[in-house]
C-alpha cells in the first residue's frame, strides 16, 4: 500500500465522487501501549457477520494510546470496520471464562451497546476521503 509520488501529487483528485478514496481509521482509548492493533474492513453484511472476505485486513504495532491508520484506494461503497487490540499478540481477541472480551475492541460508528453491532449500524459511506473514529472499548 505504499503511495507513489504521483499518487501524492494527485491525491486531491481522489476526493472526487466515484473515485477510489483513502479511509483513515482514527483509533483512540487504547488501554496499554503494547502489542498490535488488528483491523478488518467489510463491504457486505454477510461477510461482516461471518468474519470472512474482508476488503482490507491489517495490523499495526501499538506505539501510543491513539493512532491513525490510513487505508488507501477503497472504491466508493459502504464499509464496516471491526478492530481489536491484540495486547499479548496471540492473534485473538482474548475472552474470560464466560466469553466476555478481556482485550479492547471497537467498531466503526462506535456502534453496538450490548455486544457487536449489525453491519448497518457500523457501516460508513465512503465516497471521498473519509475519517472513521473508533474508540476502543
Amino acid at each position: 500500500m505504499k503511495r507513489t509520488i504521483a499518487g501524492l501529487l494527485f491525491s486531491s483528485l481522489y476526493a472526487l465522487p466515484g473515485a477510489a478514496a483513502d479511509v483513515t481509521l482514527a483509533v483512540s482509548n487504547i488501554e496499554a501501549v503494547q502489542g498490535e492493533l488488528r483491523w478488518l474492513v467489510f463491504d457486505s453484511a454477510e461477510d461482516y457477520a461471518a468474519d470472512r472476505n474482508p476488503v482490507v485486513a491489517g495490523r499495526s504495532r501499538v506505539q501510543a494510546d491513539a493512532m491513525a491508520v490510513t487505508l488507501h484506494d477503497l472504491p466508493p461503497g459502504n464499509y464496516a470496520v471491526k478492530l481489536f487490540h491484540d495486547a499479548n499478540q496471540n492473534g485473538e481477541l482474548d475472552t474470560n471464562m464466560v466469553g466476555l472480551p478481556t482485550e479492547g475492541y471497537g467498531f466503526s460508528n462506535n456502534a453496538g451497546r450490548f455486544g457487536p453491532p449489525d453491519f448497518d449500524d457500523a457501516a460508513v459511506e465512503v465516497q471521498a476521503d473519509t475519517r472513521i473514529d473508533v474508540r476502543v472499548r
Binding site: L100, P101, G104, Y105, N110, A111, G112, R113, R135, R137
Partner: peptide, 19 residues
C-alpha cells in the same frame, strides 16, 4: 457509562460488564 438502572443517551459502549 450507563448505570445498572440508568441510561444516558451519550453513554459510551462498554467492553463488558466490568466497565
Amino acid at each position: 457509562f450507563d448505570g445498572a438502572g440508568t441510561h444516558f443517551a451519550d453513554a459510551l459502549p462498554a467492553r463488558s460488564n466490568e466497565d
